[in-house]
Amino acid sequence: MKSYTAAFGLAAFATQVAAHGYLTSPVPRQPGNKLKAACGSQIFNQWSSDINGNIQGALQNAGQPDYDAAACNIWQCKGMKLEEGGNVESFTAGQKVPITFNVAAPHTGSANMSVVDTATNSIIGSPLITFDNYASTATGVTDAEKNFDITIPSDLGGKCITAGDCVLQFWWDSPEVKQTYESCIDFTVGGSGSGSAPAPVSSATPVSSAAPVVSSAPAASSAPAATATAVAAAPSATSPAATPTPAAGGSALPAEFTVQEFISWLKAETGTASKKARRHARAFF
């Protein structure tokens, strides 16, 4: 029985790490002491060895005694915090910011980048860029999916002045493998022309209420191309909410649960193939 259990665990872990990716520029959040204290040593070690990993894989360690669900807040930046000495970018309203994302292994899904209020874990305004068909295993990953620009909004409601209050969060979800990836850039923003931040690029314009999407054929795809088109709405999984909630056949774990209850839930989850579930996957803890 012990050998069978071990084999099952390895198989489940192999499934969870099938696809991954993480921001590379500007410098994103990294695993550190605050992450370890909140999320536990297992998740800290997991992100330290492979920062590209997915949230569902990390949740296999949710039963560890040093895992604090509320403090970890794993559905925000994969639980990573603004660590002491961590990188904080300084932007101005309307500034165009080049972004680089590393797709370490593709799997078809949707993705977007948004300004997130870390206190409420909610999007400020609308996503800055949206990809309806990201890292497709059918068509391949384009350079425009790995290198793209976003524009810092002109109206952030007076927020994002203090380091740690806001992040630029890249969210990528692949229903075909039931995996979700997040990575965050810490930043502050001053008014246009502020001497403490870089001058805005003259061609940049504030983000409108509709998320910009750039689409290559087929029309449903949103891999960036030369021309941006508006979409009706951002993926529901990143709409303002405390956290996205992963679906498990209509069931959910209670706020407190035993290791055995979690194992039973995880087994049920691996047999459920809901393509809508992952888009609402931000309020699990």
Rank of each mutant, 00 (worst) to 15 (best):
A268P: 03
P200E: 02
T180D: 11
T142P: 03
S202R: 05
T151H: 03
A12S: 14
F257Y: 15
T162R: 04
S110R: 04
S110F: 08
P240F: 10
P153E: 07
A105C: 03
A230G: 00
S154E: 11
S209E: 13
K276A: 13
A268D: 10
G63W: 12
Y67G: 00
F101I: 05
Y22C: 00
T130M: 05
S221Q: 06
I43S: 00
F257H: 12
F148H: 10
H20Q: 10
P206F: 04
A283N: 11
E182S: 09
I124K: 08
S90M: 08
A283K: 09
T137A: 07
F148G: 11
T130L: 08
A233Y: 10
T245I: 09
I55M: 15
N133A: 07
L253T: 01
A228Q: 13
K178N: 15
E84F: 04
G164D: 04
S41K: 04
T139S: 12
W75S: 12
D132L: 12
Y4S: 10
F101N: 05
A119M: 11
A252Y: 13
D173G: 08
V27F: 04
S41L: 02
V213W: 03
L156Y: 14
I161V: 13
A255I: 15
V103K: 08
G140D: 13
P31C: 09
S3Y: 11
K275T: 15
T188V: 15
S236P: 00
G109S: 12
A163Q: 12
V116R: 09
T139H: 11
A62W: 00
A93M: 12
I150Q: 05
V189L: 11
Q64F: 01
C160G: 05
S221L: 03
N147I: 02
D143L: 11
A104S: 14
A111W: 08
S25I: 02
G249P: 08
A211P: 15
Y4D: 11
E145A: 12
G190L: 08
G157P: 03
F284Y: 11
A226S: 13
S196R: 09
P198T: 04
N133E: 10
Y67D: 00
S114R: 10
G85A: 07
G157C: 07
S192D: 02
G63E: 06
Y134M: 13
A233E: 13
I74F: 09
Q260E: 14
S209F: 07
S251W: 05
S154I: 07
Y67A: 00
L59V: 04
Q60N: 09
K96W: 01
S251L: 09
Q64N: 15
Q46P: 00
L82I: 15
V115C: 08
V207L: 14
K276E: 12
E83G: 05
F131K: 06
G40I: 01
Y67C: 01
A223P: 04
V17L: 13
A283Q: 08
T92A: 08
A247P: 13
K146P: 01
V259Y: 00
I150A: 12
Q260A: 15
N73D: 13
F284E: 05
A105E: 11
F170G: 01
I55K: 01
T162K: 13
T229I: 06
L23W: 03
L35A: 01
Q95V: 05
S221R: 05
S183K: 08
I74T: 07
K36D: 02
A210S: 14
N54H: 04
A277E: 14
G158F: 06
